[in-house]
Design a protein around this nucleic acid. Structure first.
Length: 419
RNA sequence: GUGGCCGUAGCUCAAUCCGGUUAGAGCACCAGGUUGUGGUCCUGGGGGUUGGGGGUUCAAGUCCCCUCGGUCACCCCA
């Protein structure tokens, strides 16, 4: 039996698991502070949901989905991204939900592809969505929220790339103009784009190939072809971001792989990670999504953030990521009376809201203190025969070895004061 | 999915180029030094089918093929 996890997946054991847990906790706290509420959707959906919303020609749909047929003959797909499922669930329950609807999620996504660092077949995302607000203030809020998350971790080496890809009023004309330009330049494109650009011309703009870049640089720019409302919206987003002290870099070549995006598209790109894994989070506006699902017109904006990448960026910026806090106390019992008293103390500490643990079996003091140390406990609460007889507890601060003796009845309050 | 590089102890690596006895080291882990003091120190100990399979050879960690995994660049994204 091969004990390694399947390709492209991760076992998150201590201390890594604690770091991911801490990221979840921080993200949830932040999202709630901005008025978002937690949602969960199924781990798999009808394949049609992703096929319709991501675009039949997108890479996600054509080669990256984990699609299977269940025993009832249904085609199902493991969730490759978060927005379409949340929108589906929202549309299904819209009558009971407030508007605007602000949701966040912390969950795993599945995409089949060749794995490498920061690119996994199963990865974790923190995402937020706002449904029902067309105003640029919503775009600004999700970007500011995501930026605050990165900054609160101590990350600094990233840039904000932003673009507007227009909407139904201006993108079709731009698309035709771009197509005409690309047809005229076809000889200078790399092979795979010579035939592929007709289906998705915007993608050529994003190509990293030197020749394609030259073609893209001289291509007509969407930012100069926006219709009035789109231009106004884009300006509103840029102004709003600057008012929050952010300095987005307008990047006309930034496009999105998913068809339902309109207007705003953005990516936070790490400057310390290699290019293939540098996008910490990306998102944008998707005013066409609800209708693509057969619902009413519901504007929306949001982002998805790759949490493994955030951890990688912390490492490469030399930042200690947050972790699960260690124990408040490790209870050490010695001798029969001491162990009995220690068991009672352990119950009391836990009931009092403190994190506490103890050895299960009788062990020498030395071994118990080592366990306390390994558990990352702030204090060892030692109850030997003498302490048990006197109704007292010796509290040893593990960081520096200083000890205090406290009456048994005061231990919980005393330790609370030390937190 | 395409191309390149790399897989030796839990981790980081040595021995691989140019095949040759029982595959070593540091860290980590366990125990003792110290039956009421961890983390430091000293001593000792456990731990490897050299990712897996096949081939060449008197002999394979070392050479060849396949496969699995990691990684880098693409594609694309988180």
């Amino acid at each position: 039996m091969d004990l390694a996890p399947p390709r492209g997946t991760l076992d998150l054991l201590p201390p890594e698991g604690g770091r991911m847990r801490a990221l979840y906790d921080r993200a949830a706290e932040l999202a709630r502070r901005y008025g978002y509420r937690y949602v969960e959707t199924p781990g798999f959906e009808h394949t049609e949901l992703f096929a319709r919303t991501s675009g039949e020609t997108s890479d996600v749909v054509t080669k990256e989905m984990y699609t299977f047929t269940d025993r009832g003959g249904r085609s199902l797909t493991l969730r490759p991204e978060g927005t379409a499922p949340v929108m589906r669930a929202y549309l299904a329950h819209r009558a009971e939900l407030p508007s605007p609807f602000k949701a966040y999620y912390l969950t795993r996504m599945y995409r089949y592809g060749r794995p490498q660092a920061g690119r996994y077949r199963e990865h974790r995302q923190f995402g937020v969505e706002i449904f029902g607000v067309a105003d640029p203030a919503a775009d600004v809020e999700v970007i500011v929220l995501g930026e605050e998350f990165l900054r609160s971790l101590g990350l600094r080496r990233y840039e904000i790339q932003i673009n507007s890809i227009g909407d139904g009023a201006c993108r079709p004309a731009y698309r035709e103009e771009l197509l005409a330009y690309l047809r005229a330049s076809v000889g200078r494109l790399r092979d795979e784009h010579r035939t592929g650009f007709e289906a998705n011309p915007l993608r050529v703009l994003d190509c990293k190939d030197g020749a394609c870049r030259a073609v893209a640089a001289a291509a007509p720019r969407i930012t100069e072809r926006l219709c009035g409302p789109c231009r106004e919206h884009f300006e509103g987003v840029l102004t709003g971001l600057r008012e929050h002290g952010l300095e987005p870099i307008v990047t006309p070549t930034l496009v999105r792989g998913l068809d339902y995006y309109t207007r705003t598209a953005f990516e936070f790109v790490s400057l310390v990670l290699s290019e293939a894994q540098a996008t910490l989070f990306g998102g944008g506006r998707y005013d066409g999504l609800a209708e693509a699902l057969g619902g009413p017109a519901v504007p929306g904006v949001g982002f998805g953030m790759g949490l493994e990448r955030v951890l990688l960026a912390c490492r490469d910026e030399g930042i200690e990521p947050p972790s699960e806090p260690g124990l408040d106390a490790f209870v050490v019992g010695l001798g029969e009376a001491g162990r009995r008293a220690a068991a009672g103390l352990l119950r009391e500490l836990r009931a009092g809201g403190l994190s506490a643990d103890a050895a299960y079996e009788e062990r020498p003091l030395k071994a118990q203190l080592r366990m306390a140390d390994r558990a990352g406990a702030a204090y060892a609460a030692i109850v030997g025969e003498r302490e048990a007889a006197e109704g007292r507890v010796t509290l040893r601060r593990l960081a520096d070895g200083t000890q205090t003796e406290v009456a048994r009845a005061d231990v919980v309050n005393w330790l609370r004061g030390e937190r």
